[in-house]
Nucleic acid binder design. Structure first.
Lengths: 209, 209
DNA sequence: GAGTTCGGTGTACACCTGTACACCAAAAGT
DNA sequence: ACTTTTGGTGTACAGGTGTACACCGAACTC
């Protein structure tokens, strides 16, 4: 098909990729729990039983997609952190990065947002776990910021929970307004304002202990 | 069955109720989009085709459940508002009310949280619309609070969006930790702290215009 | 009291579902 | 050159799926 002969591993990885892509495609307007192995197989162009050569259930396929999605999310976080922490407006920068990434990787983020609430049990658990990791990482980042020296670690966690939650919601909104540039910029601006409000509150905050 | 004869309208409403309840029950560990008409019928104890006497699809059944769920949510909001706005700690009061309500109407809130992200298109739209209404109501409430006189209406909307979002997330967490009292109180406390942080930021806020 | 309405039943059909099984061809290992 | 491994195929089956159709009996209407 491609002209050159293919090693066996290459081919396996190629159809594995095709399965993942097909699933993301189908998840555009449905959810994993409403997805059948046969639909996926048809979309890929393989026979249903061939699916088992790569995953032993829709659920484990979902887990693979979670892993993959969080790779791109980590890329996003790295981008955000790479910028000078003293940068004039870290908020604008962070929100822009988020909005750009979500648009670029729309299908992955849509998948995460949907399955986080409605996916198979194991998938939901995996997503919650990953989000928790993000929260912890953010908390340690926040701890390095000037002004948080007096904070208790609980309060740091609460703040990062709040911020991550707001970012998840923003990602939801971006996915929702895909293809409508004006809606995207509206979400962008709202997210900035929200984040500023939260940070102003945080700067004013004093832990009780 | 009940001994007394039943009017036809009573009976219809009774099995309609049974269908709604059965669906909520089944949605405990699945989603509407993964639910079949036959499963619902079996759970209710009627024959599949009888379903059509009440709803013409799973989707319209979903819409009915959205309406019903938001009745109980409005009850919650009324409760929150009924309290003296000058009450010593309006945050504690509001969060307690939320936590109590979500636990009492767990199935409804679980349904909303899940279908908000993964339900059929029309159901998702209905939920988003209702949440938007809640945001608007909250915005007008906030406008009556002392200290928000200088705020632009956009900023008021942004703040209420932020608060509603946080409350939705809190409801998610409460549903998640159903049956584990310690987890519930942890979520409760975190929600209070978050809301305080946000409100501190809000009090400090000055609209640009 | 006769006729109508309507919630619920049972049968039937075409289609989709997961998965077991036997098979193939070509790459990989020897 | 041989055997083995393996990704993919085709057939087959027992179930679940939505829904069309004809029907029933009791609550309603007149």
């Amino acid at each position: 098909m491609t002209g050159t002969t293919e090693t066996r591993g290459e081919r396996k990885q190629r159809t594995r990729r095709a399965i993942l892509d097909a699933t993301l495609e189908l998840c555009d307007d449905s959810s994993l729990v409403a997805l059948s192995l046969r639909q996926v197989a048809k979309q890929v162009g393989i026979v249903p039983t061939a699916f088992y050569r790569h995953f032993d259930s829709i659920e484990s396929l979902g887990l693979a997609l979670v892993d993959e999605s969080f790779v791109s999310l980590r890329a996003l976080l790295r981008d955000v952190r790479r910028h000078d922490p003293a940068y004039r407006d870290i908020v604008d920068q962070s929100v822009d990065t988020l909005v750009t990434h979500v648009q670029k990787e729309r299908q992955h983020f849509q998948f995460i947002v949907r399955e986080r609430a409605a996916g198979p049990l194991a998938v939901r658990a995996a997503i919650r776990h990953q989000v928790e990791l993000c929260e912890r990482e953010l908390a340690t980042d926040l701890a390095r910021l000037p002004g948080t020296e007096t904070w208790s670690s609980e309060d740091l966690q609460v703040l990062s929970h709040l911020i991550v939650m707001a970012m998840v919601a923003t990602a939801e909104d971006i996915v929702e307004s895909a293809g409508r540039p004006d809606a995207v910029t509206a979400v962008n601006e709202r997210a900035r304002t929200q984040l500023r409000m939260v940070l102003i509150g945080a700067f004013q905050w004093k832990s009780r202990d």
